[in-house]
Design a protein around this nucleic acid. Structure first.
Lengths: 99, 99
DNA sequence: CCATTAATTAGATAGTTGTCTAAATGATTA
DNA sequence: TAATCATTTAGACAACTATCTAATTAATGG
C-alpha cells in the first residue's frame, strides 16, 4: 500500500499510467512523450513496477510496458470504506433517507 | 489532485484519517495517539487540511478536526475509470485482431 | 565482430519532506 | 494580570526524491 501511494504521488507517473490505457508501449515510446530524459523515465517506470501498477516484458531489444490495474482494487476498497463509514454526526443533516 | 496524493502518501496521515472515522478529535487528542511530537502532528494535519481531507474548527482553546471525504470522490472517479478502460488487447489474448 | 540502438545502472546534485526543539500565539482561569 | 494550557510557527537537519550526464548491458544488423 505504501509503494502504491508513493508511485501515484507524481504527475509524470500518473501520466504514464494514463498513457498505457491506450495500449502497451515500450520504454522508448513512453520516454518520447515526455520532456525528460530516458533514464528519468526509466526510473519512474521502475517505481511503477515496484508498486505493481505496470508489468514489463522484454521483447528482443525492446521492453514492453503494460498496465496492471488489479493493484488499484486495494486502493479502491480503502477509498470506498470511507464513503460507507459516514461520520455519525452526518445522520441528522437535512433529511437523508437513512437507507 | 496533486495535494491529495501528496497528503495520502504518508502512513501517519493515513492513520489520522482512519482515526477521524471514529469521530472528530482535537489536535491534542490526535497527537496523543502517536509516538511523535505535537508540532509534527500539527504539520501533518496542515497537509491534510491543504488537501481538503480534514476541516478544522477552533473551539475555545481547542481546535477540532473532522474528516471530509468529499475530496476522495475525485480520486474514486479517477480510479474507477481505470477499471472501465480495460486494455483493448485483453479481449482476445491469443490472436491479435490487428483491427 | 563491430557499430548501432534500446534500455538500465551509477553517481551527482538540487529540491522536498518528516521530524525535532525552541519560541510564539491565543484562550482560560486563579 | 500572571500562570497555564493547546496549538501553531520558525528554524534546523537528516533522509528521500526527481532529475541530469556518463557509463554499462544487451540485442540487432551489416
Amino acid at each position: 500500500m505504501n509503494n502504491l501511494f508513493k508511485a501515484l504521488n507524481d504527475p509524470t507517473r500518473r501520466q504514464i499510467l494514463d498513457l498505457l490505457r491506450g495500449g502497451d508501449l515500450n520504454a522508448g515510446d513512453i520516454a518520447e512523450r515526455f520532456d525528460m530524459t530516458k533514464p528519468s523515465i526509466s526510473h519512474h517506470l521502475d517505481l511503477l513496477r515496484q508498486a505493481g501498477l505496470v508489468e514489463s516484458v522484454k521483447q528482443g531489444q525492446f521492453i514492453n510496458y503494460s498496465l496492471n490495474t488489479t493493484v488499484l482494487d486495494e486502493l479502491l476498497a480503502w477509498l470506498m470504506s470511507f464513503q460507507k463509514t459516514e461520520s455519525p454526526s452526518a445522520e441528522i443533516k437535512t433529511s437523508e433517507p437513512t437507507r
